[in-house]
């Protein structure tokens, strides 16, 4: 008795994580190679810029999902909050609210919905999925009622989108002369902040502690409740930002813009290698997952697959990937 356990002895640190990231990056390269070979124009300047833009939307939306997944939770209200903030912002602007306060109002709304999600799903442990689903639906119903006041088109809000917002999320957008859409810069900045905070501060590490072992976390006085609510609040805020950015992209408010993000956020998290049971992975992995999904989408589109078919493919991908990382223990071991 002086050596680490032989069966697992001397494994390099954070094995699972680094394996996943390596796997993800390999997948990324393979997909890119396949796509540039199979899809004409894949490596073109415009395509790369538009992929970057789409990745930025997905990446920001998946940020909150990652935080929830790290705790073993899930946020199904993301698409609804995205849709709601999209049309709310459009309406606010239509009603003559200056753009800066309008954005703040929408962002605050997102945070409030997130906190509500957190409070309710913490109370109803293990049912986060249903709770957030139901709450999201209520929110999107409510915000559509609000936005359709005095309008004949319910669900879509037409109106002038300020040019700065268009510029934020336009494929042709530039930042300080760089040919990169500003929203991509926002994404990169967010990513740097999140990855740093998650790895370098006590606050960030608390997420891993709670996700890894809730009981042990409470023994070292980390408040599971606080972390849980914060994760959902972050998710609400990120959904609101995505919704607003998508308004700039599409130029008109449409409640359905969030739809695709219902499952792509979960898929990005899972493909990146963050376990839905909590504790493993992180936003760094999700970035890889986001890029994989974006390139895969581009590849599937290039191969002529419809949006519906892509969805089916993603659906088929999730079970084997989850099975690879996290299976429940056998009943025999629980008696």
């Amino acid at each position: 008795m002086s050596k680490p356990d032989d069966s697992k002895g001397n494994v390099p640190g954070r094995t699972l994580l680094s394996q996943n990231v390596v796997f993800g990056i390999a997948l990324l390269l393979a997909l890119s190679a396949a796509a540039s070979f199979l899809v004409p124009g894949f490596v073109s300047y415009t395509n790369i810029r538009s992929m970057l833009l789409l990745a930025a939307f997905l990446g920001i939306a998946s940020l909150g999902q990652t935080q929830c997944a790290l705790l073993g939770g899930i946020d199904m209200s993301i698409p609804y909050v995205i849709g709601s903030s999209n049309i709310l912002l459009a309406s606010l602007l239509n009603w003559g609210v200056p753009s800066f306060p309008a954005c703040l109002i929408v962002l605050a709304g997102g945070v409030v919905v997130g906190i509500l999600n957190g409070l309710l799903s913490f109370r109803l442990q293990g049912q986060a999925l249903i709770v957030t689903f139901g709450l999201g639906l209520a929110i999107v119903g409510g915000s559509q009622i609000v936005t359709s006041i005095g309008s004949v088109y319910a669900g879509t809000v037409l109106g002038a989108v300020p040019s700065w917002l268009r510029g934020m999320s336009s494929v042709a957008g530039t930042t300080f002369g760089l040919p990169i859409p500003p929203i991509a810069i926002v994404w990169i900045a967010l990513a740097i902040v999140v990855v740093t905070v998650m790895s370098k501060t006590p606050f960030g590490r608390s997420f891993y502690a709670v996700g890894g072992n809730r009981q042990a976390a409470s023994r070292v006085l980390i408040s599971e409740f606080r972390i849980w609510v914060i994760a959902y609040a972050i998710s609400g805020a990120m959904s609101a930002i995505t919704g607003m950015a998508l308004l700039g992209f599409s130029g008109g408010g449409f409640v359905g813009v969030g739809e695709p993000y219902l499952f792509t956020t979960v898929a990005a998290v899972v493909i990146g290698g963050t376990s839905l049971l909590g504790g493993w992975g992180g936003y760094g992995s999700t970035i890889v997952g986001t890029l994989v999904l974006t390139i895969l989408t581009s590849l599937l589109v290039g191969l002529g697959l419809s949006y519906a078919m892509q969805q089916a493919v993603f659906g088929l991908l999730i079970v084997p990937i989850v099975a690879l990382y996290t299976r429940s223990p056998s009943l025999r071991d629980q008696i």
Binding site: L129, F263, V266, L276, L277, S306, Y307, A308, M309, Q310, Q311, A312, V313, F314, G315, L316, L317, I318, V319, V322, A323, T326, R327, S328, P329, S330
Partner: peptide, 21 residues
Amino acid sequence: RVAPIIVTLSGYLFLSGINLV
């Protein structure tokens, strides 16, 4: 032994895609 909710979630995604196809 994958959590039922994940399995049916992927089922949701898969089928709603197929339906549109």
